[in-house]
Write a protein that binds this DNA or RNA. Structure first.
Lengths: 241, 241
DNA sequence: CGTTGCGTTGAATAAGGTCAAATAGAGTGG
DNA sequence: CCACTCTATTTGACCTTATTCAACGCAACG
């Protein structure tokens, strides 16, 4: 069953996302220190920017509810979705390197974020080793995720990419207490395509093919995974490209 | 002119790569603290692994001399080059998330690395704010770099990818005091292809085409950039994919 | 009830991939 | 230093995959 975050207090110590989020693994006293610097519940409406490429880094953001995408922009206007983000995910890590955000973060549905002033986080993480450690792990996890996307973009076929994408979503929903087999895509076919390095028509076609083959059921944005095993088999069993 | 690192002492404070490397921006006293924990000059022979995917994280590594690649591995044996690394680059950041390396790091020529025990680095960065800050920036820079690769893999044509690759190398050599227009590729066509999500034959063909068009001169691994402007124009001027 | 944005599907096309053969280089042992 | 071997590279002919272009359906919304 989905966790209803609206029924919970908005402090980290009682947040259902705590273990997915920044303050994972802190003790009670440390948690209180973190809570004091987090501005909770900033709402972002669907379609709104949380931040834009080029804007100054002030805070990192943890998603409390909702769904967002981040887009990298090419000089010539081409853009690419670099990631989809859901509850518990931490956004803005790319901005630390230059103190400017390097991508846009846009809400795909009405969302709510916790705002964590970065300089305060840096100071706090000097005093709380387990916070420091966890923060480092989160940055590193983003790097690992990126390597996975590079592998996907660099060496997988369209079907494999989409299978990997669906399985990744499935797993992330499961980790948050939602169904791993039935969920809504919050993004358009074009956004999926952009993320996977494919065109929207290809996404549509492959989804249809998956449905014909009995792997999934699709109805517009509604996805039901019917044969998880076959989907898994699609990735990771080819000799070569 | 290339910087001859062999003539320099092997301490950070007199290392020509200091400003590219981990201890950038530290004062003399802080630098000494860092120096004390860095094991310098671990040699890695061409073809040897610096670390392997799955092995435990002990240290981060800064490249002193030489050239390396990191490869992510897919379950089915497919592998992809995730990056090429040269003097001053810091390796191993992906391992922090799980305490295990997630990719292989392999020397493409005889190399030498400085070894920085990670737990010591974490402790030290609590005491030295500017070290902490710089370390965060380096992790973030890796994330930004990865976004760039994702953009390249997801939305650029073969010619654009290769142009971007050559320009990136050019710029990094320049930043290290080497020629920006003439350099050796230390990697094979296959490795370039793996990094760019293309086949080795495509790399070969595009390099030949660039040569015919007078953009570069290629002789096996030797590259001379003849028309930097045209190469730059190749990336960043298309309406769409 | 038209408009608009999103999704599906088909046919033609282009970009790279595959396979194969020839050549060039680098490394090794005599 | 040379011959031999093995690997890397180049190039051509053909093929596969995904893109492009275009038409149409559907649902939400003013």
């Amino acid at each position: 069953m989905p966790v209803d975050v609206h029924k919970l207090k908005t402090v980290c110590s009682s947040c259902s996302l705590r273990e997915l989020c920044l303050p994972a693994g802190l003790d009670q006293r440390e948690l209180e220190q973190v809570e004091r610097v987090v501005n909770r519940r900033r709402p972002i409406k669907r379609g709104d920017y949380l931040y834009r490429a080029g804007s100054e880094l002030n805070s990192l953001y943890a998603i409390r509810t909702g769904f967002m995408k981040s887009c990298v922009l090419h000089d010539d206007g081409r853009e690419q979705v670099a990631g989809f983000h859901m509850m518990g995910d931490l956004l803005g890590l790319d901005a630390i390197s230059s103190n400017k955000h390097t991508c846009d973060a846009i809400a795909l549905e009405d969302s709510e974020v916790c705002e964590i002033p970065f300089v305060v986080l840096e100071r706090l993480s000097r005093d709380i080793p387990s916070l420091q450690q966890h923060f480092h792990r989160l940055m590193s996890r983003e790097i690992v995720r990126d390597y996975g996307v590079m592998l996907l973009l660099g060496s997988m076929l369209a079907e494999e990419r989409l299978a990997a994408f669906l399985l990744n979503l499935s797993q992330r929903f499961a980790a948050r207490g939602y169904s791993s087999t039935e969920f809504n895509l919050r993004m358009t076919r074009e956004e999926i395509g952009s993320y996977l390095g494919l065109k929207l028509e290809t996404i549509s076609r492959v989804l249809s093919r998956f449905q014909e083959e009995g792997l999934i059921e699709v109805q517009s944005k509604r996805i039901k995974i019917v044969n998880m095993g076959a989907l898994r088999a699609l990735i990771g069993q080819h000799d070569c490209h």
